[in-house]
Structure formats: structure tokens, C-alpha cells
Design a protein around this nucleic acid. Structure first.
Lengths: 244, 244
DNA sequence: AGACTTTTAAATGTCAGACAAATGATTTCT
DNA sequence: AGAAATCATTTGTCTGACATTTAAAAGTCT
């Protein structure tokens, strides 16, 4: 691991990249201890604060963890599905909120991915998944539910659907797509009637998955997507009219 | 924005979280300048190195960028699709390599997601997408191609397929799934015959998308998935036999 | 007056050195 | 032998300083 002290980029960035490369390439394996900050400083010919910044960059990406005390230090961290999902969700959410992605584009992507999960969910769903989906459906029927709580439950329903596919890699990739939609969905005001329609579609999806009917699940998901988009169009049109 | 100096967690972590929350909540908008390190240090009642570490954590996630000089400082960064994709690819790759995810699980997830893109690609593919796919197919037929180069071209082919769906959000989500498979694919040794089969399937996929035949594209993708899995089984079996 | 050059102030980048706090190993005492 | 005290090591945080970069402001010349 070497760095170029004359390069234009920050020294900590270079050091972080060098260590990251070592991890990705397998030169450093999970739970292996890195040299201490003082040793790294000497190795890279920089000061300890510079090394610290590099380590902090890596810690921010959950690539390493640090431990104080004797025989402490920085250790290569096993990237858990949980950590990876959390990162993915914030990244996806920010990406959508900062880039003026249209509601339709995000919605299309989300439902396309979800429909990919449906056939697997139909095949493998267990009782816990079905129970989780139905619990959310019940909650969505509560009359005094705020719009935000309704959206949160909607997200939970769809994540249960994804989890029913019993593929952790799929769950990880979908987490970002599903969660990132929540802020966009929160811009919609749901009438009692529109909530009823959505809940009915959720029920159809849950039933189809229970009955192992892939075609029906796919159809219901497609309908839900179109209904969601039309709902948003109505809200936008109503707001535009109110302004004039 | 406040922090609790008596909390168990690191001060920089708390500060970074506070700033991150401000960005996510919209209190800080894109390109807005954060207070200088000295001002932040006073505001949070900590020293400048502590603030710096917090800012470096955020910079590592591309949430802020820093600029030196007068009227420089830290600015809220617009998270570009490019940055987000790069992050997602490394996260996905590490997740798979560090968690002993089975080849089949990752492969299933990848093809399930890709099949979700196919109908949209059929609908919207442009000439550039078709040309990109065919260019990769041509390259894959080169007789003196290394296994690694073959895999890289395979990834490029599939990314072109995903891009043909003309949905940047979808491309972003799929980038991780497709790229993260490459290290796993690199463990396979491709015979001339297996390469031929794969190239033929790629050609069928490209033709189906050109002909706007969604069903055919889906079938070919499913076949490719099964063939890839069986290929890996053969390689594993051959290696196990060689060891005995 | 306008364009070019120089200066300057403000901010981050890097360093050195110090002390605090945590933590596991070692030693000592009962 | 077991429990308690000590110790060495390592990260966490602070103070203070200087280097470097950058854009704005001031100054100068045509």
C-alpha cells in the first residue's frame, strides 16, 4: 500500500482508497486488525490526524470498526445486510430528493422491481410473511390514521412482500427502491376513498400470494402502480386548479 | 442542531448525524454553505478536529464537498446518479464477498431484477442501446478473450440492457446487482462451448428487444439464468472431483 | 474609465504534541 | 486459586500552529 504525497487529491482520500482497495482485493480479510494509527502514520509518512481522517472515512462506510484500549485498533468490518440496507436507503432517498426525479419514474422503477419479486414470493412465502402483510392491511384500514402513518404502513406492506421472496440479496436491493418512495408518497393527500382502493388492491395481492397465483399478483401490482400514478396526477391537478 | 456531549457514541458521529438529518429533512438545501469548521466547533462546543472528522464522514458519503480558500467551506452536495451508483456498486460487491452469499442467491436476484427491466427495454430501446449490446456480443466472440474480459463484457452487455429501459432510477438500482456478480462470475472458467451458448443467448435477447418481443426476451433471460447456474454447478463438481 | 496585477483575508489541509479514557493483560495480594 | 490493583497500549479529544488555496478587494497602469 503506497500513496503519492504529491498528488492533487487529499492525502486522507488516498490513504482511505489504498486501504479500501486492500479490503476489496482480499489482502485484508474480515476481522483482521489494521496497524495502529501511529504505525499507519509512519508507513504512509503522514501525521496521525491525517491517518485518522482516512480511517474515519472508512468507518463512515462501515468498512472498518474501531475499538479503544490495549489490543484495540481498527478492524475490517463484516458488512452486514442491515448496515448495507441502511446505507442504501439513505443514498436512494437523497438521490431522489436531490435530483428532481419525477414521481412516475421512481414509481415505475419501484413497481417494476417489485413485480420481479412477486413470482418468487408466490413460490416461497411463509406464514410469517402473509401475517405481516395482513397486519399492515388491517392497520391501513384504521379510520384515524394520518397520511404519514398510512404511507409508512404501505412501505411496511411492500417490504413484507419483498421479504416473502426469501432472497436476502433481493431484499437488500429492493429496500432502497421501496423506502425512497416514501417521501414522494407523503406529498399525496389520501382521501378515504383512495385509501379504500389501495387497501383493496393490497388485499388482492396478499390473497394472490397466499393462493400461489403469480399472474393475479402481477396484475394487482400493475393496477396498484397505475392507480398510484393517477392518484398523484389528480392531486397535482387539484393543486394547480386551487392556485388559479 | 444539538448534540449530547455525554452520550456514549463518538462526538463526530453525533455531529455527522445531526448535519445529515438537516440535509435529509431539507433544512439544508443543495449547494448551501455550512458554517465554517471554527463556527461549527463553537456551535457544538467541541474542537475543530472533532468537527473535521464529522465533515469527513459526510464527505465520504458524498453528502458534502469542501472547497478551500476564502468563501470556501463545506457545501451540501447534490448526490449525482454517478456517485450514488459508484457507492452502490462497492457496497453490493463487498456485501456479497463478505457474507458468503451463495452464487445461486445472487444470480437469482440479479436475473429477477433484470427480467423486470426487459419489458420496459423492449418498449423504449433506442438504436444506441441495441448497438451497445451488439458491440459487446461481438467482443464476446473474440477467440483470444480472457475469462475476466469475457465477464466484464458480459456485465457491460447487461448494463446496456438495463439502460435500454430508459429509467435512471432503475439503472441505478440495477448497477449494484449486475456489477456485484462479476467477482462471483470470475470464479467460473468458461470453455469455448459455454461461451458460445452464452453469446447465442445474448444474441437472442438482443434480437427480442430489437423485435419488441417481450416474451421472447424474458424466456431467453430465464434460460441464461439457468444456464449460468448449471455452468457454475459443473465447475464446482469438476473441482470437487479433481480434489478427490 | 477600464482592464490587468497585486494584495489580503478567510477558509481548509496538515502537522506536532499532549492528555484523557478505555481495555485487556499482567502482576500482586489475600 | 481467585480477586483486586496495576500497567501498557491504543483510540478519542483538545490546543495551537503553520501551510496552502482561493476569491474578493484594492491598487495601478494604460
Amino acid at each position: 500500500m503506497r500513496i503519492d504525497p504529491n498528488s492533487a487529491t487529499d492525502l486522507p482520500v488516498q490513504i482511505a482508497q489504498a486501504i479500501k482497495d486492500a479490503i476489496v482485493s482480499g489482502a485484508l480479510i474480515v476481522d483482521e486488525r489494521l496497524p495502529s494509527e501511529a504505525e499507519l502514520a509512519e508507513q504512509f509518512q503522514v501525521s496521525r490526524p491525517t491517518v485518522r481522517e482516512a480511517l474515519k472515512r472508512l468507518a463512515a462506510q462501515s468498512l472498518i470498526r474501531t475499538q479503544r484500549g490495549a489490543f484495540g485498533g481498527a478492524f475490517v468490518n463484516r458488512l452486514s445486510f442491515e448496515d448495507a440496507q441502511a446505507q442504501q436507503i439513505t443514498t436512494s432517498t437523497l438521490l431522489l430528493s436531490m435530483n428532481a426525479v419525477s414521481f412516475d419514474t421512481a414509481c415505475e422503477a419501484r413497481f417494476a422491481l417489485e413485480r420481479a419479486c412477486a413470482p418468487l414470493a408466490v413460490e416461497r412465502r411463509g406464514d410469517t410473511h402473509l401475517a405481516a402483510m395482513r397486519a399492515e392491511i388491517r392497520q391501513q384500514g384504521a379510520p384515524d390514521l394520518s397520511d404519514e402513518a398510512f404511507c409508512a404502513s404501505d412501505v411496511a406492506f411492500h417490504r413484507a412482500l419483498v421479504d416473502a421472496a426469501a432472497n436476502p440479496v433481493l431484499s437488500y436491493h429492493l429496500a432502497g427502491a421501496v423506502e425512497a418512495m416514501q417521501p414522494l408518497m407523503n406529498m399525496i393527500t389520501f382521501t378515504a376513498r383512495s385509501r379504500g382502493t389501495i387497501v383493496a388492491l393490497h388485499a388482492r395481492i396478499a390473497e394472490a400470494i397466499d393462493a400461489r397465483d403469480a399472474a393475479q399478483a402481477d396484475t394487482a401490482l400493475a393496477e396498484l402502480m397505475h392507480y398510484t400514478m393517477s392518484l398523484k396526477d389528480d392531486v397535482m391537478a387539484a393543486r394547480a386548479a386551487a392556485r388559479c
